[in-house]
Amino acid sequence: MMKPGPFARRREAKKLDSELGNLLWRQAHDRFARSLDRYWQVVESERTSPVPKEEYNGLVNAGNALVDALATVRSICAEARERYGEHELNVPAGAHEVHRMMSRAANDLAATAQAAAMYKRGQANLLSVGRRAEKVLDSVTAAEDLMKR
């Protein structure tokens, strides 16, 4: 898969700016996206210990589920910006739980990347990666449910 060129990245950044602004909700989205990028860097890096193909496929499948969650995170953040507005980087009244779930999802995704790195080094098992990925998806689902209220 080819990475997008500078013009495509700039176009996407402008689109994100129009949807999410460049303050609180953009920051929440970008933290999740950076953690997801880190996860893929770990998964696609050279293996430091032999990983069976079916277990590697498990890492990829978990990553694919997390990629799907990025679209949900984007829509949650866009809707939250529309509903609650932006007040610099301060969380607006009524948005605390949604923002907390978005922060938790990004933090859990960073921990998922760390668990994957430890697994690839032979210091953890694949179940720990799966449990972490499930926590990410649970937080995204919780935020989505809060936005439906």
Rank of each mutant, 00 (worst) to 15 (best):
M1Q: 10
M2N: 05
M2A: 12
M2T: 09
P6W: 05
F7S: 14
A8N: 10
A8L: 09
R11Q: 15
E12R: 14
E12W: 08
K14W: 08
K14A: 15
K14T: 05
K15V: 12
K15P: 08
E19F: 14
G21H: 12
N22M: 08
L24F: 01
L24G: 04
R26N: 08
R26I: 10
A28Q: 13
D30P: 11
D30A: 14
D30C: 08
F32M: 03
F32H: 03
A33S: 08
R34K: 13
S35M: 03
S35I: 06
L36N: 00
L36W: 00
D37R: 15
W40C: 02
V42I: 14
V42D: 01
V43F: 04
E44M: 10
S45F: 02
S45H: 04
T48H: 12
S49G: 11
P50V: 14
P50I: 10
V51Y: 08
K53R: 13
E54M: 13
E54W: 11
E55K: 13
Y56P: 02
N57F: 13
V60L: 05
V60P: 00
A62S: 10
L66M: 14
V67P: 00
A69C: 01
A69G: 03
A71R: 13
T72N: 06
R74V: 06
S75P: 03
A80R: 00
Y84A: 03
G85P: 00
E86W: 07
E86H: 05
H87E: 11
L89Q: 09
N90C: 07
V91P: 00
P92H: 07
P92A: 06
P92R: 07
A95H: 01
E97K: 11
V98C: 03
M102K: 01
R104Q: 12
R104W: 05
N107E: 11
N107K: 15
D108C: 10
D108H: 12
A111C: 10
A111W: 06
A111G: 11
T112E: 03
A115F: 07
Y119P: 04
Y119K: 00
Y119Q: 02
Y119V: 03
R121E: 10
G122V: 03
L127G: 05
L127K: 11
L127Y: 07
V129H: 02
V129E: 01
G130F: 01
G130Q: 10
R131W: 13
R131L: 13
A133D: 03
K135Q: 07
V136S: 00
L137N: 01
L137Q: 09
V140R: 02
A142K: 04
A142G: 07
A142M: 12
A143N: 04
A143H: 05
A143G: 13
D145W: 14
D145F: 10
M147L: 10
K148V: 14
R149P: 09
R149H: 09
